[in-house]
């Protein structure tokens, strides 16, 4: 057998193996009906968010002065121009919700990105080096965990100044300790395994051992925690927005929309109900996906 032939076979085999792994992943994931439904909803949300300017019937910030608090189209007094009605200053609810999806997904992504990266690095360092490094890091994390999360986020925003960016940073800091603990626990169980010793024996240095040898084996719980934190981040951001510390009006962020609509709760149910529903559906969908991921990634739950 000559060489080009060989590498072709090797290449085809490795591609085949990757495909098999994906197929196996999908098999376990798709056994959980809720997860598939959640994934579907989530994909629709992502598409809507990406294509917001094309999908939305109106500009989210335009105020139609003749249509304050118009009810949804199916209710008496509804207008077919505004499918889900308008808010107190005549802005189309549907368009604002569609643009709001952008903010929510963006918040989730950024917050989980920051918290995951920081949490993984700190957690791996703590779990790998142990000793005083571990003690210092974990005690700091314990202190952060001891605060009620929303209160801590509020304090941080108060220090940094209100705004969406600062709110995201605050939420990321609040969520971080969970990732640190999870990573550290996973690293602690992995670091004494034989394959780590074998890698050290083969000449691997600390950085390589930490991030290339050990970390990939700790990823499954982190991915699950990441998706669940995604929804948590959206909820916290909405809560901060509702308290006036997150995104500032007129940003069509769902929590901020809720805050603006508070005073009309009794005479115009739609201004509060729809942003609330949007948050609920998004968070539920992501949580369902997270559960499905756990089924697919956690080897302990696998029945093979």
């Amino acid at each position: 057998m000559n060489n080009p032939d060989r590498s072709a076979v090797v290449l085809a085999e490795s591609r085949n193996a990757t495909r098999k792994m994906l197929a196996e992943f999908w098999f376990y994931f798709s056994q959980n009906r809720g997860a598939v439904a959640g994934l579907f909803v989530f994909i629709v949300l992502v598409i809507v968010a990406l294509a917001a300017p094309l999908v939305a019937p109106h500009d989210p910030d335009v105020q139609y002065r003749d249509f304050f608090l118009t009810p949804p189209v199916w209710q008496e007094g509804g207008n077919s121009m505004f499918l889900l009605g308008t808010d107190a200053v005549g802005r189309d609810m549907l368009s604002r919700l569609i643009f709001g999806a952008r903010f929510s997904l963006f918040i989730g992504l950024v917050v989980v990105g920051i918290a995951l990266t920081g949490g993984i690095v700190i957690g791996v360092v703590a779990g790998y080096f142990r000793g005083w490094v571990d003690t210092v890091i974990m005690r700091v994390m314990d202190v952060i965990l001891a605060f009620p999360s929303l209160l801590l986020a509020l304090v941080l925003v108060a220090v940094l100044g209100p705004g969406l960016m600062n709110a995201m940073i605050a939420i990321a800091i609040v969520l971080q300790p969970h990732f640190v603990r999870l990573t550290r626990a996973a690293v602690l169980t992995e670091r004494t395994r034989d394959y780590v010793v074998a890698a050290r024996l083969a000449g691997a240095g600390n950085t390589r051992l930490m991030f290339k040898t050990i970390l990939p084996n700790c990823l499954a719980p982190l991915i699950v925690q990441g998706t669940l934190s995604f929804s948590n981040a959206i909820l916290d951001a909405a809560a901060l927005g509702f308290l006036g510390m997150g995104a500032q009006p007129p940003t069509p962020e769902w929590g901020t929309m809720l805050a603006e609509a508070r005073e009309f709760i009794l005479r115009a149910w739609w201004v509060v109900t729809f942003p609330g529903l949007a948050i609920l559906i998004t968070v539920l969908a992501i949580n369902l996906v997270g559960d499905g991921l756990r089924d697919a990634l956690d080897p302990k739950l696998k029945r093979s």
């Binding site: 490795s14 034989d194 394959y195 010793v197 074998a198 890698a199 024996l201 000449g203 990939p216 084996n217």
Partner: peptide, 25 residues
């Protein structure tokens, strides 16, 4: 020492399955 160990001195362990990193081929 790391250069010598691993290249000139190698070692194999008792538990073969645990000695290989489960994440990589």
């Amino acid at each position: 020492r790391r250069k010598v160990i691993g290249k000139d001195i190698a070692m194999i362990f008792q538990e073969p399955i645990a000695s290989l990193n489960p994440c990589f081929t």
